[in-house]
């Protein structure tokens, strides 16, 4: 009974509809009540209805607890839902994501057309290129540096890459060499800005006077407080230590740089 009412209440209802329902249930509705008031009235009714219902403890085991045969006959589990998800969306896509100052991650997805192109006989080699285009308008040839790795783009779907410069802006590209040795780009990634890992070398300092609404620019005076930096491998975010017993043991073992 209350379940139906709860469902019904989920809709966008007019005050008239709400009031009519409340009256139907024998609740006292006053003229000056707002829509929210009537809603609350009905919600309280549901709550009371729930409390007065005899308790029927259904047995349920969640995903993390081992399923055990229950002797409880009243068990009514919702039917198991199919949660099979696709492993590709058949779209051409190369995505770059920063992991930390030294490591970046790529994943890609391919359309059927490009997947079959890659299999074709006039391709001699498929590569993942990474361009360092920090602070430049990239035109395809003017990168500061270009890195290249031969990869099996159909066999694997992602790649962890160790990159040389923290704070740099990298762009990924999947391309191939044809039988004549010509390089042909296929997919380009988003721009990936790597985190920095050292204090700024800037020689200026900017300040804002909030009372006078004035900006002040002056030569940098450096940091007054001594800083003890932590290095990768140590446990930062000590909080996580308490969230879980084995946090902090995360290592680079999985970031092999060798794809899967």
């Amino acid at each position: 009974m209350w379940k139906e009412l709860q469902e019904w209440l989920k809709q966008d209802l007019t005050i008239q509809e709400l009031k009519a329902k409340a009256k139907e249930l024998g609740l006292s509705v006053r003229k000056q009540m707002t829509k929210a008031d009537v809603r609350r009235l009905l919600e309280r009714y549901i709550e009371r209805a729930k409390l007065s219902e005899p308790e029927s403890v259904e047995s349920i085991s969640s995903a993390t607890s081992q399923m055990q045969e229950s002797t409880d006959q009243s068990q009514q589990l919702p039917p198991k839902e199919d949660i099979t998800i696709p492993d590709s969306y058949k779209k051409d896509k190369l995505v770059a994501m920063p992991i930390n100052p030294q490591w970046m991650y790529f994943y890609w997805d391919l359309s059927d057309a490009n997947a079959s192109l890659i299999k074709s006989s006039n391709i001699s080699k498929v590569v993942l290129r990474v361009y360092d285009i920090t602070y430049i308008e990239f035109n395809g040839t003017n990168a500061h540096r270009t890195f290249e790795i031969g990869i099996d783009v159909l066999g694997i779907r992602n790649y962890y890459l160790n990159v040389p410069v923290p704070g740099a802006h990298y762009l990924g590209e999947i391309g191939y060499y044809d039988v004549d040795g010509r390089y042909i780009p296929l997919l380009r990634s988003n721009l990936c800005m790597m985190p920095t890992s050292s204090p700024s070398q800037s020689t200026r300092e900017r300040w804002l006077d909030l009372r006078k609404h004035r900006r002040i620019v002056m030569p940098a005076s450096g940091m007054l407080t001594p800083v003890i930096e932590r290095v990768a491998g140590s446990v930062q975010g000590l909080e996580s230590l308490f969230r879980t017993s084995n946090a902090g043991s995360f290592s680079f073992a999985r970031l092999s740089g060798k794809g899967m």
Binding site: P98, I99, N100, W207, L208, L210, G237, A247, F250
Partner: peptide, 21 residues
């Protein structure tokens, strides 16, 4: 009243300070 203007660096409070968690 007076505050320095800065753009903070990419960071998180997870293990090792970035995105790897």
């Amino acid at each position: 009243e007076k505050v320095q203007i800065l753009t903070p660096a990419a960071s998180s409070w997870g293990a090792n300070g970035y995105n790897e968690v």
